[in-house]
Design a protein around this nucleic acid. Sequence first.
DNA 1: GTCCAGGGCCGTT
DNA 2: AACGGCCATGGA
Length: 209
Amino acid sequence: MKQNKIYKLYKDLRKKHGKPQDQWQLWCRRPKTKAEREEVMVGAILTQQANWKNVDLAMDNLKKARKAKISAICALGKKDIQELAALIRPSGFYQQKANYLFYFAKFICEKNKIANYFSVQPLEKLRKEFLSLKGIGPETADSILLYALDKPIFVIDEYTRRLAKRYRLAYNMDYAYLQKLFESKLKKDYRLYQDFHALIVIEGKNFKK
DNA sequence: GTCCAGGGCCGTT
DNA sequence: AACGGCCATGGA
């Protein structure tokens, strides 16, 4: 890949921060076990507009209750959504997130009945299916595709926008535009996308809006 | 006490 | 298409 501002930013961040640590050790692990993938999916929903410390508290509650995996959640009934909400309370917006989690889990388990569903379906189709679910917007959908399913799709978030402004990488901060921009400047490699986005979040915390 | 975090939904304009 | 209010906790 030729030198360009975006790839150079990756190299700089990699040099400055090394391999992503903390939560990112799990999210950037290769390969992941099935259980780890399911845990990342849960985390992707809980982390919406939430401090990771709070998400961690919620994840601990779920683990103690043996409900930190998609397969455990989709075994629940509708009447258990309140119990789920109580467990994830520290992550904030917990009533909504409990519903999001429950129906997302149902969706995943349903599709998993079809052989190799997530490996066989085209990426664009999978993404549209995720986006059709309540509570799964562009960032959450792409986070799950990239970090849980190892699909080569670049995640855009608040920190990506901050760095894009700070380093004048773009003027348009529209999600689809930024995503295409980053993907067009990088080798199509989920491992690169995973590490780069993690580093963007780590670095982004140093900047105000 | 105040501010804010890795979003997304819904109603209004 | 764009914008504002809303959802909520815990740490700085």
